[in-house]
Simulated scan of single mutants.
Amino acid sequence: MKWLVTGGAGFVGSNLIASILSERPDDRVVVLDNFSASAYDEFASAPPLAQAERLAPDAPVWDANRTLGVIEGDIRDMETVERATAGADIVVHLAANTGVGPSVENPRLDSEMNIGGTLNMLEGARAAGVKRFVFASSGAPAGLTEPPITETIAPRPASPYGASKLAGEAYCCAYAVAFGVPTVALRFSNIYGPRSWRKGSVVATFIRQAMAGEPITVNGDGTQTRDFIHIDDLTRAIRLAATTSGLSGELYQVATGCETSVNQLLALLQEKFEAAGLPAIKRRQGERAAADVQRNFADASKAAQELGWRPQKDLSEGLAETLDWFLHYRRD
């Protein structure tokens, strides 16, 4: 099986590719990434990703003797997209302008990347006749709704990011119906875990700030809630979405269903810091953005029923593992 992973050098992509190469050793993977939010040396720093080869502009993309290739390019460039998708069996589209904050600062860039870039990838997948197109969405399209979020709620995005991801979901459904592209959209909840060296999510940001001896910035009073999912659970869901037969035009929530406040998260992190012999976490209050929803968690029953997927790692265990990775990463 030949996998094309856009944004594959980032947090989710690097973990996904490591799991594919470890569990499906006969498969081949190609990464398409512009490295705007990642670095090649970081991506290829440890097995099995250390076998990555950067592809020259005239190099064949799917060389039978190469397990992991890397194309440096942008999903907004159709020529690059066509080169990368030709010959692929599965496209996992992770590349995006991520996060609510950046989308509020630059909504036009958010649209160009998340709507225009996704349209390019779907066009490339359609021309290539791929077996599955997996689109990375989030809980942001749901926006101003009472949780738990399900696949059937009426979306009310509260940010340009939510709007652009909702448009991506809609294009995936349209391409499945109009062109027969077998798409699956996955709404990721808040992801954390190893390899999140550049991740702007709350867990990674809090750990980086605390390890640097800086106060952790909590925007608002900390009562806002999120659904935190470990990267291993998420990558397993992506692999199932890519390989489960008979899926097309589907949307799934990928979440734990557990509602955790930022204050509760901080208390758990403090326990892990104390257990690791690290200094106590300091805290300061920041301003809560208008586009930041107060409560967010999701019901993943549909994924359990149709993909056979359920989360396996609880937050306490996952935070300890994530902190341990950061400690080793800093030493290395």
Rank of each mutant, 00 (worst) to 15 (best):
E214K: 07
T223D: 08
A241W: 09
G213K: 02
V202P: 00
T225G: 02
I238W: 10
D227K: 02
G213S: 02
T223I: 05
P215K: 10
K199Y: 12
R236M: 11
N190F: 01
A212N: 07
W197M: 11
T244W: 02
Q209A: 08
A242G: 12
R226D: 00
A241H: 10
P194D: 15
T244P: 03
A210C: 03
M211R: 08
Y192I: 06
R226Q: 01
I229E: 03
S245I: 04
P194Q: 14
I207E: 04
R208N: 03
I231C: 11
I229M: 13
S189Y: 15
A212F: 04
D233M: 11
S245R: 09
A204S: 14
A210T: 00
G246R: 05
Q209T: 05
P194N: 14
A210K: 02
I238E: 09
I191T: 15
I207S: 01
T223R: 12
P215Q: 10
D232Q: 15
P215C: 07
A242N: 04
T217G: 02
I238P: 08
L234P: 07
Q209R: 06
N190S: 15
S245V: 05
T235E: 10
V218P: 06
L234G: 08
V218Q: 08
Q209S: 08
E214S: 07
Y192A: 08
G200S: 09
A212L: 07
G200V: 09
F228C: 04
A241S: 12
T225K: 07
V202S: 04
G222K: 05
L240M: 11
K199F: 13
S201Q: 11
L240S: 06
R195M: 14
G220C: 09
F206V: 00
A241Y: 06
P194T: 14
G222E: 01
I231G: 12
T205K: 00
A204T: 00
T225M: 07
G220K: 09
D233E: 12
I229L: 15
G200I: 09
T244Q: 08
Q224I: 07
E214R: 09
R198T: 06
I207L: 07
G246M: 04
D221S: 12
A212R: 04
D233V: 08
G222I: 06
A242H: 03
T243E: 09
Q224W: 05
H230G: 06
A204P: 07
G200R: 10
S201F: 09
A212W: 02
P194Y: 14
I238H: 10
R187F: 12
I207N: 01
T243Q: 06
E214L: 09
L234A: 15
Y192T: 04
F188M: 15
T243G: 02
D221R: 10
S201Y: 10
Q209D: 07
R198L: 13
D221C: 05
Q224K: 09
V202I: 12
S196H: 11
R236K: 13
T244G: 03
Q224G: 03
A204W: 00
A210G: 01
V202N: 00
T243V: 03
A210F: 05
I229H: 00
D232I: 06
L234M: 12
